[in-house]
């Protein structure tokens, strides 16, 4: 095995993370090659220092904080499980709103005539000029000169018959 190849393996070999089947070859090379052996020793020393430091310098929870975190997590997880909070809404009222909108929308699509009729009725009443502007009307015959006065109540609906 050549130095170039062994150098690639050394970082893993130094941390005992090398596949067993190749260990013998690398070990054999290290016995003969001084520079590779030096690099191997360097890696071993660095890894040992690093592992020691990472083991010593460990953060920990304060007891109360840890328990609070776990309980808060349980509460949040349960909140998300609730049937009142279906995706993508967080609250039940949003679900109700969504259902009402869906019903209204489906009515519009399935029975458009129902809505149109109602709209037309509203338009007729409000657009009727007689109901609001004309209270009385006089008809004069050209031939006889007869005058007929028609009085309309304000709220009376006038139907035009052709």
């Amino acid at each position: 095995m050549k130095c170039r190849k062994v150098t690639r393996f050394i970082p893993l070999f130094a941390g005992s993370d090398f596949p067993a089947e190749t260990i013998a070859k690398v070990r054999h090379h290290l016995q003969d090659c001084r520079s590779c052996q030096q690099e191997y020793t360097e890696y071993q020393s660095i890894l040992q220092q690093t592992r020691e430091w990472l083991t010593q310098e460990r953060k920990d929870w304060e007891e109360a904080e840890w328990k609070k975190t776990v309980h808060a997590a349980i509460e949040k997880a349960n909140e998300k499980r609730s049937w009142l909070a279906p995706w993508p809404f967080k609250r039940g009222w949003a679900f109700v709103l969504m259902t009402a909108s869906a019903i209204l929308l489906s009515l519009l699509v399935l029975h458009p005539s129902l809505v149109k009729d109602k709209m037309r009725g509203i338009a007729t009443v409000s657009a009727d000029p007689f109901q609001t502007e004309i209270v009385s009307m006089q008809l004069v015959s050209k031939e006889t000169g007869l005058k007929i006065n028609w009085f309309f109540h304000k709220d009376l609906k006038l139907e035009v018959i052709e």
């Binding site: 690639r8 970082p11 660095i46 890894l47």
Partner: peptide, 9 residues
């Protein structure tokens, strides 16, 4: 892992 250790060295 090998890359990480190389960078560490």
């Amino acid at each position: 892992l090998s890359r990480a250790r190389q960078k560490l060295r």
